[in-house]
Simulated assay, not measured.
Amino acid sequence: MTERRIAVVSAGLGRPSSTRLLADRLSAATTAELAARELSSSVETFELRDIAHDIVNAMLTGFPAGQLRETLAEITGADGLIAVSPLFTTSYSGLFKSFVDILEQDSLNGVPVLLGATGGTPRHSLALEYAMRPLFTYLHADVVPTSVFAATDDWSGNGDQVNPLPKRIQRAGGEFADRITQRVGAHPTDPFQDVPSFEQMLRDT
């Protein structure tokens, strides 16, 4: 069984951050949904704050170097991407946008993407649809229908009984798992795997 690889990008600035917490919730929901489909998976999370200087250097020079080059290879080579950003002044963070700007234009072509965002109040949630979704649509990513926004109050207390956030996370994880499962060409087969050996050809003559 081929293991599905999930890359998670968190653009949270604090530590700990609600952005990372949402990213972890989304990845946990995805792995659970993949397991329900009898698919194994692995998750690798990348904190953009840890490579912020490399991102700025790449924007200035036009070339990713060091840890950033390895990070880009891991993210663009994954079977699916979870991308979560805090919202500032009704849009994604500058760090998040800078990271997306250094991605090669076709590097996420057809890759399933699950979007998440965090902010102070629910009125900022529409930024996922008018800001973040068009960004990844431009990159020809396969963005799942359900995106997830978490406001500050969503993390307080034990309001999961009345809070729609857990159910939205579960629904988004299910859609994301479906896209990963159905993705054509996510694991291309070896074109030579069915070529008979020399001994087999001799036996067939």
Rank of each mutant, 00 (worst) to 15 (best):
L139H: 10
S27V: 06
I6Q: 06
I6T: 06
D106L: 00
L87H: 07
A141K: 02
P166E: 15
F96Q: 05
L39W: 03
A11G: 08
P86Q: 07
G185H: 08
A73V: 04
D194Y: 13
S107N: 12
L135W: 00
Y138D: 04
D24M: 09
E104V: 02
I102A: 02
L114G: 08
D160Q: 12
T76V: 13
E38T: 12
L81D: 08
A58L: 04
E129D: 15
D50R: 11
R179G: 10
Q67K: 13
Q193C: 10
R171I: 06
R123V: 13
G119N: 12
L114I: 12
G110S: 11
R4M: 01
V195Q: 14
V84D: 15
A186F: 12
I75C: 05
P86C: 12
V84P: 07
Q170G: 12
R5C: 00
E3W: 01
Y130F: 13
V143H: 01
Q193E: 14
L39C: 02
A186E: 04
A78S: 09
L26S: 01
F192K: 14
T76P: 06
F192H: 11
A29R: 03
H187K: 11
S10W: 08
Q200A: 09
A32T: 13
A127K: 11
Q193P: 00
F136N: 08
Q200M: 05
L135H: 02
F99S: 01
Q67C: 04
A186H: 15
S98L: 08
A177W: 10
V100N: 11
S27A: 14
S156M: 12
L135P: 02
E3I: 05
E74T: 00
L126D: 10
S107F: 08
T2P: 09
E44N: 03
T121A: 08
A131Q: 11
L139A: 12
T90W: 14
I102D: 08
F149Q: 06
Q170V: 14
G14N: 09
V195Y: 13
G173V: 13
E3H: 09
